[in-house]
Nucleic acid binder design. Structure first.
Lengths: 212, 212
DNA sequence: AATAAATAACTGACCGGTCAGTTATCAACG
DNA sequence: CGTTGATAACTGACCGGTCAGTTATTTATT
């Protein structure tokens, strides 16, 4: 009866938070905030539910940590690529649109974003954080680039913020389509093809002095 | 002790379902499906919780009734206007975009749609219904009109379904922006201005033989 | 032995759904 | 016309299950 066998658990204080956040990302993505069960997050993280409370005070704080972890790297990456781009606005679009398509297809930004949209009303702090940390900077960044391009005479007159919305909107739609309607049988959108076609329309519709 | 006083309730079998659906629309719009409380719906409808179950079997069925009531009139209106339009595609866009903007600004489609997006994963029947009854028909309708316009040589070559997505996406974004970020301090989008600017870009980017 | 990580059993509030009882309404009857 | 009996709309207290969060206890580590 005294054979030790494999220990029941190990003490791994350093790794737990990351593993828990990772597990929580999965469950929140699949179920949304309200329907996510802490028992399931704990199970996937390989710990007990009580252990969650050693590292996070509440469910909401855990959600917050998930959102933070999903935002920062992707935003930084996009921002760097955009600000470092030297050429004209048309060339910037050629780089930017496929980049966005790729981030959407591969990162956790999409399901988290959908969750923020779905439950933002009930968790205003979260919507505020998402808006201030990710959405507003992105819109501002793109708007600023558009305004500069207008000043150089490359982009037609108009509200830069609305132009930014027009540029980003199809990607938002593709994400929500994939997350909402594809699971119930809708035909998916090919995000890369959408990016390519969107680029064509934008170049003809937004830029000055381009041929259709 | 026999003074009747005001009666505790009245029997109004005809009106109850409509009043309950209306109250439910409000609560579902504000809270989402999961967070909506049947007690609150009942309170707003001026009945007891038990009365809800005289007219609807479950919470989900009530939600279904709400979705139905919000969809049908608006879809029918848009479809009629679109199919009856005689002129070229550019002129159709001029009518269609402001119409969409108006429906978004005034109808209950927007909050319900946001709710479907937010909770569709947990209620696939609902997402399926919304997709089959509203979204797929709309996409199909617009795609068909685009294909016809392409055949007439009015619209550039490309996947009509992707074009349809590009046309609709900014309105989706405006709705979600209003529902999600404006309550936490974001600056709203002027949907009418967005429609106007979107029209300009689409005419230059989508149509053949138009001057920028 | 002392400490802290981790567990597992537990609590209490919440809420969808139920149902026994109440009351408005109306038709039948005197 | 007033009364009464029958019906069905309606109420509201209640129940059972669920789940975020707590705590008494065990176990790994130093």
């Amino acid at each position: 009866m005294l054979q030790p066998g494999p220990p029941k658990f190990q003490r791994r204080k350093e790794d737990r938070p990351g593993e828990i956040v990772s597990a929580a990302l999965g469950v929140f993505s699949e179920k949304g905030f309200a329907a996510a069960r802490l028992d399931e997050i704990a199970r996937r993280a390989g710990v007990s539910k009580g252990a969650l409370y050693l590292y996070f005070e509440t469910k909401e704080e855990l959600f917050h940590a998930v959102v933070k972890s999903a935002i920062s790297p992707n935003l930084a990456m996009v921002r760097e690529r955009l600000e470092a781009f030297p050429g004209p606005f048309g060339g910037l679009l050629e780089v930017f649109l496929p980049t966005i398509a790729q981030v959407i297809a591969t990162s956790a930004v999409a399901p988290i974003g959908k969750m923020v949209i779905g439950e933002g009303r009930n968790f205003p702090e979260l919507a505020r954080y998402w808006h201030e940390e990710l959405v507003a900077p992105m819109i501002g960044l793109v708007s600023g680039l558009i305004a500069k391009a207008q000043a150089r005479g490359e982009v037609r007159a108009g509200d830069p913020r609305l132009f930014a919305a027009q540029i980003m909107a199809p990607f938002l739609m593709a994400v929500l389509w994939r997350e909402t309607f594809v699971p119930v049988g809708a035909e998916p959108f090919d995000v890369q093809a959408l990016a390519a076609q969107h680029l064509t329309v934008l170049k003809a519709g937004l830029l000055i002095g381009e041929k259709a």
